[in-house]
Design a protein around this nucleic acid. Structure first.
Lengths: 121, 121
DNA sequence: GATAGTGTATTATAGGTGTATTACGGCCAA
DNA sequence: TTGGCCGTAATACACCTATAATACACTATC
């Protein structure tokens, strides 16, 4: 996996896993790859993976069975809520960024529409 | 100024200044505050400010007159180009993020429209 | 020339991040 | 019970970031 510089890798791993879970690639109640496996997969150290998992564990998205592995929560309410929160955060960030670049709300919609058209080519 | 953790401050300063320039709060050809002044203003070390300015200097957005100060470029073409690039980058990031959260292009537009309506309250 | 304000450079220190390595403890199946 | 996966913890090292303090160099102005 490619990581951006200037953003801690363990945060990018968290984000990656969150998205895997939210888009259903990792399913509720199911085991995710082991820390060592993820470390190899992502070409990263075990400690770095573990740091990400620890936090996600604390946040309730994962739960750990020692000696067995990490599993995606079965709390679908929490998953839904998390998804909405992540989307909202993205919207927030985006609109705020565009505004601080001097782009008005109407212009944002216009730009985005154009962008999506362009992208489809 | 408040800085986000997990992103180097000097990069946030760059972003801040870029936006000041692009929105015309800092005008082409005009002097920007001195490194020491910015350091106080942003409650940050002089070295950190300088690092941001050095890069912007290298990028052509600023030019330095030693002993006098830093000035915004008068190359309005470059400024326009930069603005377009920054906006494009934001669009890119946003659409990519939303997609990876399982939000389709049509849904993105819908969500954004709703979000902007909500925001106006 | 002296002074004040500017950018610039250097050094030391501290904290966060990431790697590498080693070791310990729990779970399960052969 | 043993061996092989699991998570977990601790240590040492290197790098980047940020601060702090100091000093130097250039410019304008008086």
């Amino acid at each position: 996996m490619e990581f951006k510089d200037n953003i801690p890798i363990y945060l990018q791993i968290k984000q990656y896993l969150y998205r895997q879970i939210i888009t259903g690639k990792l399913k509720p109640g199911k085991k995710i790859p082991s820390v060592r496996e993820l470390a190899v997969q992502l070409t990263v150290n075990v400690n770095t993976v573990q740091r990400a998992l620890q936090q996600m564990n604390f946040e309730g998205i994962l739960y750990t069975k020692r000696g067995e592995g990490n599993f995606v929560t079965e709390d679908t309410t929490l998953l839904e809520k998390t998804k909405r929160e992540l989307i909202d955060a993205e919207l927030d960030k985006f609109v705020q960024s565009m505004n601080s670049l001097g782009v008005s709300d109407e212009q944002i919609l216009k730009s985005l529409t154009e962008y999506l058209k362009e992208e489809r080519k």
